[in-house]
C-alpha cells in the first residue's frame, strides 16, 4: 500500500500555495505509507532558481558547502532533510549531473532538470514534510508519495518519486510482478539502476521509451503492455500530468479538476482542503487508459 497525491496548478495565482496545498494532501496520504515519503516540486524558486540547472541527490555525508566546492564550476548547494540539491547557472543539466557524479561517485542522483527538485527520505511523512519546508514551497506542479514498502527495503533510495530522466518523475502505488525480468532486459541495454525497487524499473522503462522518441502517452501504453502486476502511476514532466492504472484497477485513484487546478489522489479525502473542491469534477481514471493533462 502507498499513497499518491499530485497537483497541477492552472491558475498562476495559486502557485505560491502549491506547497501548502500539497502538505495537506501528503498529511492525508500518511496512513497509506508511514515508512517513507518524497515530493517532486516543479518551479519552486528556492529549490530550483530560474535559469539554473538543478540536480537532486541523496545527501552525501558532507556539508552543502563542501558539495558545492567539490562539484565546482560555480555550483551552489543546499541540504534539505535527507537530500542535497545542487544548482549551477553555467552548466547544462547533463554537465552538472556529470560533475556531481565525478565528485561523488557513489551518490544516488534522485532528480535532474531545469525546474525540478526531488526530496525524499525515510521517516513519517508529516515529519518529512516539516523537514522539507514543504508548506512554504511554491510552483506549478507537485507530487507527493507515501510508501509502505513491499518489494524492496525501507531505504531513502527506495522512496518515491523516481526521477531518472530530465524533468520526468514517476510515483507508483502497487507492485510489479515481472520487474526482475524487465530490469535484466534494461541492464542488458546498458541501463544502470540505483535500487532493487520495482517502481524504479517502471521509471527506467518509461525513460527508455522516451529516449526512443515515444511521447509520454505512448510510453505509458507500452508500460501497460509489458508490465504485469498492480499499479496506479502518476507521471509528471513539469508540463504534463499523466495517470494510468492496470487492467484490474484494484489500486485506488481519483482525479479532481477545476478551472484552477487538476489533482490526483489515492483517496478523495486528500482533496478536501483544495479551493473549490465542492464544485470540482471528480472521477476515477479508467483501467489501462492513459489520462494526460497539459499545462
Amino acid at each position: 500500500m502507498c499513497g499518491i497525491a499530485g497537483l497541477q496548478v492552472r491558475d498562476p495565482s495559486l502557485e505560491p500555495r502549491l506547497g501548502e496545498l500539497l502538505t495537506g494532501m501528503l498529511h492525508q496520504a500518511a496512513e497509506r505509507g508511514p515508512d517513507s515519503a518524497g515530493v517532486a516540486l516543479y518551479g519552486d524558486s528556492r529549490l530550483t532558481p530560474p535559469g539554473h540547472a538543478t540536480v537532486s541527490l541523496l545527501a552525501p555525508d558532507v556539508s552543502a558547502d563542501e558539495v558545492a566546492a567539490r562539484v565546482g564550476g560555480g555550483a551552489t548547494a543546499i541540504t534539505v532533510s535527507q537530500s542535497t540539491v545542487v544548482h549551477s547557472p553555467a552548466l547544462t543539466v547533463s554537465d552538472l549531473e556529470r560533475a556531481v557524479r565525478d565528485a561523488f561517485p557513489s551518490a544516488v542522483v534522485t532528480g535532474r532538470g531545469t525546474g525540478l527538485a526531488v526530496l525524499k527520505g525515510v521517516g513519517h511523512p508529516d515529519a518529512l514534510a516539516e523537514e522539507f519546508g514543504l508548506r512554504a514551497a511554491s510552483g506549478r506542479q507537485g507530487i507527493a508519495h507515501t510508501r509502505m514498502a513491499t518489494e524492496s527495503a525501507v531505504t531513502p533510495e527506495g522512496a518515491h518519486p523516481f526521477s531518472v530522466d530530465e524533468n520526468v518523475c514517476l510515483v507508483h502505488n502497487g507492485s510489479f510482478a515481472n520487474h526482475a525480468t524487465i530490469r535484466r532486459e534494461l541492464r542488458a541495454e546498458g541501463i544502470v539502476f540505483d535500487s532493487e525497487n520495482d517502481s524504479e524499473v517502471g521509471a527506467r522503462f518509461v525513460a527508455h521509451q522516451l529516449a526512443q522518441g515515444h511521447d509520454l502517452e505512448k510510453s505509458l501504453r507500452l508500460l501497460c503492455e509489458r508490465f504485469d502486476g498492480f499499479y496506479t502511476l502518476l507521471v509528471t514532466t513539469g508540463d504534463t500530468f499523466a495517470v494510468v492504472r492496470d487492467a484490474i484497477a484494484c489500486k485506488p485513484a481519483v482525479v479532481a479538476e477545476t478551472d484552477a487546478w487538476v489533482a490526483m489522489a489515492s483517496e478523495y479525502r486528500y482533496f478536501a482542503g483544495l479551493p473549490g473542491i465542492e464544485s470540482a469534477r471528480v472521477f476515477e481514471p479508467e483501467p489501462e487508459e492513459v489520462h494526460t493533462w497539459q499545462r
Binding site: E267, Y268, R269, Y270, F271, A272
Partner: peptide
C-alpha cells in the same frame, strides 16, 4: 453529519 470530507 456535517463535514465528512471523505473520511473513512
Amino acid at each position: 453529519i456535517e463535514h465528512p470530507d471523505g473520511a473513512h
